[in-house]
Design a binder for these strands. Sequence first.
DNA 1: CCAAAACCTGACCAAACCGTCAACTTTTTT
DNA 2: AAAAAAGTTGACGGTTTGGTCAGGTTTTGG
Lengths: 238, 238
Amino acid sequence: MTVVEERPKQETRARRVRERNRQRILDASIEIFARKGFDGASIAEIAERSGLPKANVYYYFPSKEDIYSTIIDNLIAEWDAALEHIDIDRDPADALAGYIRAKMEFSYKRTAQSKMFANEIVHGGRFLSRANRSHMRAITIEKGKIFEAWARAGKMDRLDPTHVFILLWGSTQFYADFDAMVESMLNTGRLTREQFNVATETIVHIVLKGCGVRSGARPSAGRPNSHGSRASRSVRSA
Amino acid sequence: MTVVEERPKQETRARRVRERNRQRILDASIEIFARKGFDGASIAEIAERSGLPKANVYYYFPSKEDIYSTIIDNLIAEWDAALEHIDIDRDPADALAGYIRAKMEFSYKRTAQSKMFANEIVHGGRFLSRANRSHMRAITIEKGKIFEAWARAGKMDRLDPTHVFILLWGSTQFYADFDAMVESMLNTGRLTREQFNVATETIVHIVLKGCGVRSGARPSAGRPNSHGSRASRSVRSA
DNA sequence: CCAAAACCTGACCAAACCGTCAACTTTTTT
DNA sequence: AAAAAAGTTGACGGTTTGGTCAGGTTTTGG
């Protein structure tokens, strides 16, 4: 509750150490939580991977649950960035394609966090805060209204906006959460950038065309590069 | 295998007991594994829920892993049933819609098993047998060839078949694995049948239209009831 | 320069875990 | 009816777990 006092908070050595160690613990935890889940992960392993003694981990975090929740909260905040693509003033084709690409990029680069979140939801969201829950709901309503407005304007089909949103979320999420299955199906190791692009553009194709989105001017949202997003262009791998 | 010998295998009381107890253990385990994951589930809890002493559980199953794998194996076998919809001789619209509906029905009725499987894959498929892995791959290849044949025949767009398949699998799976999130987004409890139908038909709409499937005769595969699946018909909730 | 604050850590604990086992009862077979 | 097989179970062992704590060192502020 200190409102007036608020010291300048200079960059002292101790503060740097604090930040560095907290981050080390979080980084190690993401990896381990993703691979083993909340119950499967042990603080001892997290400590080892962080290069810190176990007791030191408990100096920075009061409990395993606290580490876990911190990571989940950070992740949800990061996801919001991709959502900004879905803007009512934008061309629906650009907006949807932009969202799918951003979300897929996230699946590619932040696989472990995505898995952690998936794990959490599969287990019923035991550690999801009420704030996060209502945030998710608010987003759904807000973006849903945009879909409905586009439909009213004749820019896309009339579909239940929540389920469209779920399909977007689910299909992009799959490539992070179930990468082991994707790799099995494609008979490959970690997907290459190119394979990921094929996946992305396949989703873009099906979603845009499937939602009856009347495309605006440019094919690819603001970056007219190799892969076009026109619904009619075929998207295949070698 | 055994063709000649095969004793009558009469229905003795002990054999009935065996079957009943094994099933009790499996049923209890599905629930608990789904909610807590492999590491989070304890044999003590499984025993309690089965109404059996812990040592008795170990009489029927050699290890926790064995219970777990048994359930996964059963599940994969059950999933194959839905796949039979994707038949090269069928009308693509009927086939795809049929598969989606069957898969969604499964998500609705076998939520717990689906979650167990999701959990397993998220954790990298630690307990997935080599047989199951290659089975998944074989299915992908087999069904992929059908998609390609349909594309060559001009019955649907040319898309990478694996990614189409993944989108089908992922979007239907979502309603089981992430039901907690779906319920949060829709601000509801367990989804009603009707809500589930809206979800199903939304997916059908987007996939059929998005893949450029030229629909055959009837709108809904063999059951011409309330909700049509024609790509142009709007599918919305109240 | 020194007291206070922040940081570090080896050793420890109670609880929970998976799996075992010997001794028991019940059912099946001969 | 007796031997064999199948089912049942309480008690226990060895290990791992999340978390604590007392006592240490280092850094900071005055």
